[in-house]
Design a protein around this nucleic acid. Structure first.
Lengths: 206, 206, 206, 206
DNA sequence: TATGAATGAGATTTCATTCAT
DNA sequence: AATGAATGAAATCTCATTCAT
């Protein structure tokens, strides 16, 4: 029995029913463990959730930083961020949903919110750079950033690995939409340059 | 004491903490009523939530249908839908959040999900019309619809009535972004044509 | 609206579900009255039950005393008591069941229990008289009395006015069984001498 | 702590106050357990009652079948049934009272009622056999069966182990009364042939 | 590593009852 | 005569958590 399996069961339940509506016994049953045994692996419900969210946000931050590290061009940086964001949400839909939707269930959400802010700041910085360089011409950059992130987050609600579109194509579409919103001419990344997120431990198979 | 006040308190609590994490006693205290008295007005927690979601989705459907009734032009219809969607979310952020986020807490979500589907079908229809007429040229119309709705839904998370931008300006910005995504030339609605959503009963003051 | 109707509804519910399991609102609904209005007619749940039991036991005592008043012969007295007991139970099955089964639900059962004891003492007296006169020769008179009363009480569980046997025949059968138990030769009452109990107010139609 | 102890406390309370009037906390207190702990042993109030009734009826059926297995003679069979019925009621007065009086409190009484019917059918069969063989000459066999069972059931209300009559004597008296009712000549069982019921787990000491 | 037993706190809901109208 | 509103108390049951084994 490993921590990851417990996290997977927890993420599946939390995503479906919510943190509060999920019982610790229910989680135990899902991994074939007595509820008391769970306290050996995770310290409790809160700690379990905290671990899931922290791992998720860490992976997001790492992935996003890595995505923009290969270039200085704002348009390519923003495209990389969008592509990563889309892929992370597509590959880890349950975990991502829990990490954003259940943050309020944390007894102290501040540190996690700080990580989230850091993540969003990467998008804002690339956008501001592009704006300053005259590459982006959105009527309202703040609005544009919110809209672009939001629509990427929504990918988790419908993307399926065996669906109509393969992930790289979805990424390119979202980059294209983002560029259109920003008034930038065309997609600045070729398919083999697309960053792709890894599956995190808390995300179950399939 | 009126039903609306109870709904307002419920929406405020549900939006902040979630349906499951909100106690019936807490709701009673929020409106200065004994928990038992709540059962005099609403039949129970489930009925309360159901009523809130039903009222919300009804208002959304009515408003959206009304918004597209004034024209046959797909671009103007879609713009009206986006404007309405944004305004509804801006005016009723808490209710809208509860209506989408807590639908899973319903013991039978099917009827409400059907209403939601009906609402989204209005967007899909206008988009398909425009596509057929050659007005919209999104690379992938399905993706575009999802992206456009998602970014509108996000408005509730940051819009403030006393914020930097007045609501009509936000609406116009979102119409513009949608049109850019769809490759349509320009915003087809003038400011005085923008549909505006009413505040629903379950949305508290301010 | 009359007290009797409320008592009828109450007896029907109490007999079916028991006193504790029957709600005051349920009773109100059964007679088309608001629960608060019931407090105009009956002082409360306890008072309602008390009234039912008191009326029932009074009718039983009156009927039994009247039944034995026409003769001094112990055998005829006991036969009259058995006949009356059977008829009361057959005509008022619900009320009789409530009066015996729900006495424990009274906050002060003592006075009612005293009435019940008085009723049973009539049987014991007739039996002792007959024993002393050498008419009855049961091996154990105490046991016989208990058995005879018990089997009469059971009539309420199966007798139907439209059933196989008419009431007088049932009465005669029970008199015969009692006499057999007591070792007395034959049924000392002719059919037209059988006492018959009236329906009490709390017993519903049919 | 064992299931039997909980059942004993439950039977004591149910017999005194009735199922509905007995709280789960009250039961917990009676066995020195937190109310929540009770759910560890029994699944809930309903399951507790169901278990008690099922165990009781099973014991009755087993005992009755065993009692008649030693002979083919209808008179001896019926006598054995009466003796067993009396002894079971005398040894398990509380459990027997609950099993019959609180069956209505079951959410699904049908299966238990079926067991009860099976039990009563044993009496009816022996009685019909004797009738056919000309041993029994009751005016109305149906009535006789009801009366005989009813008077046996009543034993639980007054029998005390330290009372005036020892149990075997009571059994013999009831056999005698039953035979008198049926017009059969004499008691067909000798004292050492009397079947005796065991105490069931749910019946408390003394 | 794993668990059954145990519990205090709290969940939703129902109850009998009162009172102003 | 009749009722809607209101409530404190109590109902059953579930919860996350601890601990001895």
């Amino acid at each position: 029995m490993q921590l990851g399996q417990v996290q997977q069961a927890a993420v599946a339940c939390f995503a479906r029913q919510g943190y509060t509506a999920t019982g610790i016994r229910e989680l135990g049953a899902a991994v074939g463990l007595n509820s008391a045994t769970l306290y050996h692996y995770v310290g409790g419900k809160q700690e379990l959730l905290l671990g899931i969210i922290r791992d998720c946000l860490s992976a997001m931050l790492d992935g996003a930083r890595n995505a923009i590290s290969r270039t200085q061009d704002p348009a390519r940086q923003l495209a990389a961020l969008v592509a990563f964001h889309v892929s992370f949400t597509a590959v880890n839909p349950l975990t991502a949903q829990v990490a954003t939707g259940e943050m309020r269930a944390l007894s102290d959400p501040a540190p996690m919110q700080a990580l989230r802010d850091e993540y969003e700041a990467l998008f804002a910085a690339a956008l501001a750079d592009g704006e300053r360089a005259g590459i982006f011409t959105a009527p309202d950059p703040g609005l544009a950033r919110l809209a672009i992130m939001e629509m990427g987050t929504g990918v988790g609600r419908w993307y399926r690995a065996d669906g109509r579109l393969p992930l790289p194509e979805v990424q390119l579409h979202f980059i294209a939409m983002a560029m259109r919103i920003l008034g930038a001419p065309e997609t600045p990344l070729s398919p083999h340059e697309l960053p792709t997120a890894q599956r995190v431990a808390s995300e179950g198979e399939r």
